[in-house]
Computed example of a mutant assay.
Amino acid sequence: MTEKKVYDSSQIKDAKKLADVLISVKGESRPVFALMVESMLIGAELAEKGIARTA
């Protein structure tokens, strides 16, 4: 069964800031920027879990 995630107010504020930044990027650049942000977040999550490896 999937656990329901609960977010605190600072996480909600950070998510709103990120959404505002994504919206501010115009035109054809938005998908590339969103992909870069998502990659960065995945890397941060992996590092937090200790899965990331050093080259």
Rank of each mutant, 00 (worst) to 15 (best):
M1N: 12
M1F: 13
T2I: 08
T2D: 10
T2L: 11
T2Q: 07
E3Q: 14
E3S: 14
E3T: 13
E3C: 04
V6W: 00
V6E: 00
Y7F: 15
Y7Q: 04
S9K: 11
S9D: 12
S9W: 03
S9T: 10
S10W: 03
S10P: 00
Q11E: 15
Q11P: 01
I12A: 08
I12S: 00
I12H: 01
I12Q: 04
K13N: 09
D14W: 00
D14E: 13
D14G: 03
D14T: 05
D14H: 04
A15M: 13
A15G: 02
K16W: 06
K17R: 10
K17M: 11
K17H: 06
K17A: 11
L18F: 07
L18N: 02
A19L: 13
A19D: 07
D20N: 10
D20I: 02
D20W: 02
V21C: 03
V21P: 01
L22W: 01
L22Q: 01
L22E: 05
L22A: 03
I23F: 04
I23N: 00
S24P: 04
V25C: 00
K26M: 05
K26G: 06
K26E: 11
K26I: 01
G27F: 03
G27R: 08
E28Q: 09
E28V: 05
E28S: 13
S29F: 06
R30K: 15
R30D: 01
P31S: 04
V32T: 14
F33L: 05
F33T: 02
F33E: 01
A34Y: 02
L35H: 10
M36L: 13
V37P: 00
E38T: 03
E38K: 14
E38H: 05
S39W: 07
S39Q: 15
S39A: 15
S39F: 12
M40R: 08
M40N: 14
M40K: 13
M40T: 06
M40D: 14
M40W: 04
L41R: 09
L41H: 03
L41C: 07
I42L: 15
I42S: 10
I42R: 14
I42V: 15
I42W: 12
G43M: 09
G43A: 12
A44I: 04
A44K: 11
E45M: 07
E45Y: 10
E45K: 09
E45Q: 10
L46A: 13
L46R: 12
L46D: 13
L46T: 07
L46M: 15
A47V: 02
A47G: 06
A47K: 10
A47S: 14
K49E: 15
K49N: 07
G50M: 11
G50E: 09
G50R: 11
G50Y: 12
I51G: 03
I51E: 14
I51T: 08
I51H: 03
I51A: 15
I51R: 11
A52G: 03
A52L: 14
A52P: 03
R53E: 11
R53P: 02
R53A: 10
T54H: 04
T54R: 08
